[in-house]
Simulated scan of single mutants.
Amino acid sequence: MTTMRGTPGYLAPEWLSSVITEKVDVYSFGIVLLEILCGRKNFDQSQPEESWHLLSVFQKCWEQGTVLDIVDMSSEDMKMYVTEIMEMMKTASWCLQTDYTRRPSMSSVVMVLERGMNVESNLNYNFMDPKLPKNNSQEKDLTPIPPSVLSGPR
């Protein structure tokens, strides 16, 4: 029996329905990547109330086409590598898909970071609407997965 453990704000939406897969860690990585790019915490009460939750700000910026506005541009490197930053924002978006079946494996994330693979192009930018995948085959998802499959070849 797996019980819910983790830091609020970093837990994948499927924890609410008790469908736990290897993709919960991918979701958490997406939150951390987003925090690094934006230079702020996932939940920050020092921001105006409508901006407390980084994920909702991120979603709003994708919808408005202003995603670079939330990037921490206090660093010269961030200003110089806008193309790479956009790729990392897409990587974070891929990791933050509410449907865990649409999230990449961590092996795929590593390949994207090493520039050996591209981010999926048909992403859902509605990060605040947790939904279970349509096939809802929880038995398959709860089967132990061998470490060789989880890490996969690089």
Rank of each mutant, 00 (worst) to 15 (best):
M1V: 14
T3S: 07
T3D: 06
G6W: 09
P8N: 06
P8D: 05
Y10I: 04
Y10S: 01
L11A: 05
L11V: 06
L11I: 08
A12R: 01
A12Q: 09
L16T: 14
L16G: 00
S17Q: 13
V19Y: 02
K23W: 06
V24P: 00
V24L: 10
D25T: 07
V26W: 04
V26N: 06
V26Q: 00
Y27C: 08
Y27E: 13
S28Q: 13
S28K: 10
G30K: 02
I31K: 05
V32I: 15
L33E: 10
L33Q: 13
L33H: 10
E35M: 01
E35W: 05
G39V: 07
N42A: 03
D44S: 05
Q45Y: 13
Q45M: 13
Q45W: 15
S46M: 12
Q47K: 04
E49M: 13
S51A: 07
S51E: 06
S51L: 03
L54N: 00
F58R: 03
F58S: 05
Q59G: 06
C61E: 12
C61V: 07
C61K: 07
C61I: 00
W62P: 04
Q64W: 11
G65L: 05
T66Q: 09
V67A: 06
L68F: 03
V71S: 03
D72S: 03
D72T: 02
M73G: 02
S74D: 06
S74A: 10
S74N: 10
D77W: 05
D77N: 09
M78T: 01
Y81R: 09
E87S: 10
M89S: 00
A92Y: 14
A92I: 12
S93D: 05
S93N: 06
W94F: 09
W94L: 07
W94R: 04
W94I: 00
C95G: 00
C95L: 04
L96F: 08
T98V: 07
T98R: 05
D99G: 01
T101H: 07
R102Q: 15
R102I: 11
R102M: 15
R102A: 11
M106I: 08
S108F: 10
V109S: 04
M111H: 02
M111K: 06
M111Q: 12
V112Q: 14
L113H: 13
E114L: 08
M117H: 07
M117C: 03
N118E: 15
V119R: 07
V119S: 06
E120K: 12
E120A: 08
E120Y: 03
S121A: 14
S121K: 13
N122M: 13
N122E: 14
N122Y: 15
L123N: 12
N124V: 08
N126F: 02
N126V: 07
N126T: 02
D129L: 11
D129Q: 12
P130G: 03
K131V: 15
P133G: 01
N135I: 11
S137A: 12
Q138L: 04
E139S: 14
K140N: 09
D141S: 01
L142A: 11
P144N: 03
I145N: 11
I145S: 01
I145D: 09
I145R: 14
P146S: 15
P146K: 10
P147A: 14
L150A: 01
G152H: 00
P153D: 14
R154S: 10
